[in-house]
Amino acid sequence: MYTADFAYARAGSLAGALELLAAAQARGEDVKLLAGGQSLLPMMKLRLAAPETLIDIGGVGELKGVTGGPAEGAEGAKTVIGALTTYRELERDPMITATFPAMADALAVLADSQVRARGTIGGCIAHADPASDLPAVLLALDATVTIAGGHGTREALLDDFLTGIYSTDLADDEIITAITVPAAPPGQAYEKFPQPASHLPLAGACAAVEIKDGTICRAGVAVTGVASRPYRPRDTERILASAPLTPSLLASAAAQAGGAEQGGDVRPLSDQHASGPYRLHLAEIMTLRALQRAVERASGNSSGKAGER
């Protein structure tokens, strides 16, 4: 399969990429940025996307790599992940897998080895597939997105940045440059129920909990694959922090995972792979499993080892 014809330009730097982007837009061209290409190229081959111009930012070194994190500073340091950092680089980064066990969980079950070698974290966020794994983890961990554009740089909460199916708040002249993850508690986990052919989650859930004196004092939960975008089930989070931690508290919190998105009911996706009610059921089960494993890890129980199922 061939993509539709397009013109190709390669950026050597972020400034160069912004210039190419502005110039293509000034000419009125339909333009797309190419990072690893693991989502965009398949869409172009199926002619679901047919940009006139592709700007290849894959070689922009300044957008690659991980900085910060606990290894480089005091406790509480943020971790900054360059947008062009690949899944493979993340899964092989001992600081990342030790600091963010939920990210290690997701990376171990995400796509396949060859795709992880090229797919990038920034590309994943920009693509905004409603059924991608990593955004759930980043959402539960309160990640922010750094965006460069013609008018300077801005920072957005990932929760505000994701707007719908394949849609984000990224303007036409902007490029995602980094994802920043604040310091996170060790009690975190990601669980998914994959569609067997695509490996994408029919439902996936990430939970991050901090426990003090037998009560969850901080809870971040996010669900993916179920609605038009990954979301935080706020009622689940509220219930978790409302009473002493017991197995039944986890169950009643998980039961709300399909129930409340920013105050309203989740409108579940429905397709040939799974009906809406089935997705909501899976959301509850995956949330419960993620919570159970997150609590195990918060208690220092090694049976919650990353990547095992």
């Binding site: 013109a7 330009a9 730097s13």
Partner: peptide, 13 residues
């Protein structure tokens, strides 16, 4: 890799 390239092209070397 060149630092930056010229205009976008339909054929590439």
């Amino acid at each position: 890799m060149p630092a930056s390239t010229g205009p976008a092209e339909r054929d590439v070397a």
